[in-house]
Each structure stands twice: as structure tokens, then as C-alpha cells.
Amino acid sequence: MEILGVFADVESAGRAVDGLLGEGFTEAQVTSLSSVPYPDGVLAKTGRHNTWFHWLALLGGIGGACAGFLLAAGTAWVYPVQTGDKPIIALYPTAIVTYEFTMLFAMIGAIVGMLLEMKLPSLKKRLYDPAIAEGCIGISLSIHPGGEAVICEAGVRPEECIGPVSSLSAAEQKERAEEVMRAAGVLRIIGEVQP
């Protein structure tokens, strides 16, 4: 379950985050939605400074290098045609083609990796408010009632990703959170769309 509070400015949103944390929610439960990037920690802390998508870029690059080399050298080797006293598998041309493929696949890898890491494109309908595009800040809180199975990041203890308020029921948590947001000056609060 998730709720989204929409705030007119950064200050009120910040206050809301402070309030929520004070209420016993953890940083992991709170995230900010904005059309302008704010440095990490200003609103919500993602706590994840290490991204992994660039490894995919590297992987793509390595794959591309292999593909490029195979294409340039392999095809020439399969059907050897002598041209101008150049070797069948010529160093520089192969290097150039390998290089281009490396870069191409690395770039594709980077973008695909980025999207994967962002979990985009998402087919699920998620909480959102178009006002965010106009400069409003959304503060999203995921509510986990006690006993709900929570998947945390590897190496993170469940207490760190679920705050002490999790012992309360979902409705109660939601009520507390809405209270905090209203105190911070929320414009409106959107609850999770019930299926």
C-alpha cells in the first residue's frame, strides 16, 4: 500500500519527510517524486549510491567487441578474398569495426541497464499526480503493515527498511502519515488505487 502527498514546494515536502521519519517510518519507505532533480538526501534518501547498470554497459561493450571482431574477422576468414595485399584478417580495419561495435553495444547496454535499474517501463499503474510536472513535489510513502513480507535490498536488515511503525495496522499507519503530511501543508493526498 502506498500513499502520495503532493506538496507545493520543497520546504513543505521537506517538513513532511522530517515528520514521517519522526513518526517512525524509515528512509527506505519514503521517496520523493519531482520533475526537477534534487540532490539525494534533500528530500528522500535513496541510500543507494552504488548503481549497477554501468556493469551492463561494460558487458554490452565486451559483447559488442566480440560481435565486432567476429563480424570483421570471422566473415573475412570464412570467405577469404584477397584485396590489395592486405591480410585477410587485417589488424586496423578489424580494430575499427570492433571499436564501433563495442561502443554501440556499450551505449545500448547503458540505456537498457538504466531502464532496468529504474524498473522502467512499468506496466503497473502507479501513484502519480500531474501537478508534479508543474513543480509540485510528491512524497510517496509505502506502508507495510506488520507481518507483511517485505523484500529488502541484499544485506539490509528488515528493521532498516521497515520502520518501527510497522507494528501498527495499515489503516493506522496511513492515518498517522496523512496527519504528518497535512501538518506539513500538503495540497492533496492520493491513496492507492484499489484494484
Binding site: S32, D40, T46, A57, A110, G113
Partner: peptide, 25 residues
């Protein structure tokens, strides 16, 4: 837009990706 919401996490990854792409291109 692929369902972009502008979460803090998305922005973090996005910035890193932009830098990486710039370096690659």
C-alpha cells in the same frame, strides 16, 4: 515516457546514466 515518475531513485540513476552516455558518445 515509460512511466517515469521522477522518484529520487530514478533521478539518481538517470544522472549517472547521462554522464556515462556522454562519456561514451
Amino acid at each position: 515516457a515509460l512511466g517515469w515518475r521522477g522518484t529520487a531513485h530514478e533521478w539518481t540513476v538517470y544522472h549517472k546514466a547521462s554522464t556515462l552516455m556522454a562519456a561514451l558518445i
